[in-house]
C-alpha cells in the first residue's frame, strides 16, 4: 500500500509540469496585453514598454516559461500584476475559504446522496423510490448558479432565514454549500441506488439472509459496504466538478474564495494570479484523486491482485 502511494506521488510530478505548461500557454494565447492594462488607459507607448520590461514580458516565451517553472518549484508563484503582492500570499488567504466551502458541499453530496440512494434501493420501484429519483433528476438538471439564485430568493429574500451573501458566519455556509452539493448528491444518489440494487441481487446477500441476519444488518453491513466501492469513484469525480463550481457559486454569493479570485484575475488580465490560482486548484484536485484511489484500494483489496 505504501509503495502504491509512493508510486502515485511520483506520478504526480509530470502532471504538475503539464498543468503549468497548459496554464502558461493558454494565458499566452488570450488576447489582451497585460502591460497595457496595467499601465492604464491612455498611457503612452513608452510607459507600456517600461511595464513590459519590468515584468519580463519582452523575453522569449520559452524563457518566460522556464523561469516561471523554476520559481514555482521554489514556492514562488510570482507577484500580482495589480497590487504587486506575492500571489502565494493571496492564495493562502483565499484557499481555506474555498476548501471549507468544498468540504461542506462534498459532505452534503455524500450524506444526501447516500441516504437518497439507499432509501430508493431498499424498496425499488415503490412510490418512495420513484419520487426520490425524480428529485435526483431535477438536481442533476438544474444549473448551480440558477439553483443558487433560487435558494437565495427563497431562504434569504422571502423567508429571511439565512443571510444573502458574504462569508461571516456558519449560517453563511448553508446556501452556497447546498447549491454546490446538490448536483453531486443527485449523481451519487443514482449511483448508490443502481449499485445497491446490483449488490442486493448477489448470492452473498442471500447467504446473509439465510444466516438469519436482521434486514438492516443485511443492508448496512453486507450490501452497503460492497455497493460503496463504485460510489467512491463517483464522489472523487464529483469533487473535481465541485471545484469548478466554486467559481460560479462564489461569484453568486459574493464569497472571497479562490474561485472568485481567479475570475477577478481573469477580468483584469492578472496573469500570475490566474496561473497561480489554476495551478493550486489543479494540485488540490490531483491530491483528492490520489486520496480516492487510496481509499478505493483500502476498501477493495481484490484489485491488488490484478
Amino acid at each position: 500500500m505504501l509503495l502504491f502511494i509512493a508510486k502515485r506521488l511520483v506520478q504526480i510530478i509530470p502532471v504538475i509540469f503539464g498543468v503549468t505548461l497548459v496554464v502558461f500557454l493558454i494565458m499566452q494565447m488570450v488576447p489582451g496585453d497585460p502591460a497595457a492594462i496595467l499601465a492604464g488607459e491612455g498611457a503612452s507607448q513608452e510607459t507600456i514598454e517600461q511595464y513590459r520590461e519590468d515584468l519580463g514580458l519582452n523575453r522569449p516565451v520559452a524563457e518566460q516559461y522556464m523561469s516561471y517553472v523554476s520559481n514555482v518549484f521554489q514556492g514562488d508563484l510570482g507577484n500580482s500584476l495589480k497590487n504587486k503582492q506575492p500571489v502565494l500570499d493571496e492564495i493562502l488567504l483565499r484557499l481555506p475559504i474555498t476548501m471549507e466551502l468544498a468540504f461542506y458541499s462534498i459532505l452534503i453530496t455524500i450524506v444526501l446522496g447516500l441516504a437518497a440512494g439507499i432509501i430508493s434501493a431498499v424498496k425499488p420501484y415503490s412510490i418512495r423510490d420513484v419520487s426520490v429519483m425524480v428529485v435526483a433528476l431535477l438536481g442533476i438538471s438544474l444549473p448551480s448558479f440558477w439553483l443558487g439564485l433560487l435558494l437565495m430568493y427563497l431562504f434569504s429574500v422571502k423567508l429571511q432565514w439565512l443571510p444573502v451573501a458574504g462569508w461571516d458566519g456558519p449560517l453563511n455556509i448553508i446556501l452556497p454549500a447546498l447549491t454546490l452539493g446538490v448536483g453531486g448528491a443527485a449523481i451519487v444518489a443514482r449511483m448508490t441506488r443502481s449499485s445497491m440494487l446490483d449488490v442486493i441481487g448477489q448470492d452473498y446477500i442471500r447467504t446473509a439472509r439465510a444466516k438469519g441476519l436482521k434486514e438492516h444488518f443485511v443492508i448496512y453491513k453486507h450490501a452497503l459496504r460492497n455497493a460503496l466501492i463504485p460510489v467512491i469513484t463517483v464522489v472523487g469525480l464529483q469533487f473535481g466538478s465541485l471545484l469548478g463550481g466554486t467559481v460560479l457559486v462564489e461569484s453568486v454569493f459574493a464569497i472571497n474564495g479562490l474561485g472568485r479570485m481567479i475570475v477577478d484575475a481573469i477580468r483584469t488580465r492578472d496573469l500570475p494570479m490566474v496561473q497561480g490560482g489554476v495551478l493550486v486548484a489543479s494540485l488540490v484536485f490531483v491530491f483528492v484523486n490520489l486520496l480516492v484511489d487510496v481509499l478505493y484500494r483500502a476498501v477493495n483489496k481484490r484489485i491488488d491482485l490484478n
Binding site: 448477489q202 448470492d203 452473498y204 442471500r206 447467504t207 446473509a208 439465510a210 444466516k211 453491513k221 453486507h222 459496504r225 460492497n226 466501492i229 476498501v299 477493495n300 483489496k301 481484490r302
Partner: peptide, 16 residues
C-alpha cells in the same frame, strides 16, 4: 436450518 450454495465465491461476502 442452514444452507450452503453452489458458488462458494459469489456466496461469500467479498470484502468481509
Amino acid at each position: 436450518i442452514s444452507m450452503i450454495f453452489q458458488e462458494p465465491m459469489t456466496s461469500l461476502n467479498p470484502i468481509i
